[in-house]
């Protein structure tokens, strides 16, 4: 994944150098591994992070397994709207996304307010193919309710802002507040468990503060 030319297209030399030159990472590695970033420690940290991404048993998973009472009628209606509006064209599969690339801004250009950052360029920053400009990996929506802020630069602080932006940029029309609310109710059913405990919505506060700082 890290070294694959189609994906992150980096090398260990470049990666280690970047981590060592980034004070917060260097400090974190020093605190946890008692050394500056090294290949084995980076792999260990990535492994620990990836294991934390396994958050099974979301209420929507239970609903798909046949427990219809696992989600409320409003959440079920939100799921219907999610499919009706075509969100499932990109957000699908076991992770409700994460398995394809898509241009951000099909019907409306979300980058019409320059200057652009390197991150705004999307895959183009790696592949240099003009067709990859503003193309990003479609994110998984699992735990979306507790992983604010949203998009590559954290521009949307809440799920409401994120759904509004998606409707404008990808669907080509604004959604009613009622429909946004129902879709968000559905998205909250995708929050799973970690170490046997449901992930908490309280986690939303911290990234939001981070997003505000970045802005």
């Amino acid at each position: 994944m890290l070294l694959h030319p189609q994906l992150m297209n980096t090398s260990w030399q470049e990666l280690i150098a970047k981590l060592r030159s980034h004070p917060p990472y260097a400090a974190a590695f020093s605190r946890i591994y008692r050394s500056e970033p090294r290949r084995a420690d980076v792999l260990d940290a990535l492994g620990a992070f990836e294991r934390s991404l396994v958050t099974p048993d979301a209420r929507f998973d239970r609903y798909l397994r046949g427990q219809h009472e696992a989600i409320t009628p409003d959440e079920e209606r939100g799921y219907e709207l999610f499919k009706t509006y075509g969100c499932t064209a990109c957000h699908q599969g076991v992770n409700v996304g994460g398995n394809l690339f898509q241009r951000f801004g099909i019907f409306h250009d979300p980058f019409d307010d320059p200057p652009l950052s390197v991150a705004d360029l999307g895959r183009f920053a790696i592949t240099r193919r003009p067709s990859d400009r503003h193309v990003f990996r479609v994110p998984s929506l699992r735990n979306a309710a507790v992983t604010a802020p949203y998009f590559h630069d954290g521009r949307a602080r809440t799920l409401t802002e994120a759904v509004q932006e998606m409707a404008r940029s990808q669907l080509g029309r604004p959604l009613t507040d009622e429909h946004i609310d129902l879709i968000i109710k559905f998205l909250r059913t995708l929050t799973g468990e970690y170490n046997g405990k449901p992930l908490s919505d309280q986690a939303e506060g911290k990234p939001q503060r981070e997003a505000r700082r970045r802005r």
Partner: peptide, 24 residues
């Protein structure tokens, strides 16, 4: 093939999305 499959998925997702939305 890998590059083309990525291209196919991106475009087909748009197509299927628009087909669903067009019908709706």
């Amino acid at each position: 093939q890998e590059v083309l499959v990525d291209e196919f998925k991106s475009n087909n997702a748009l197509l299927q999305n628009s087909l669903a939305y067009f019908a709706h």
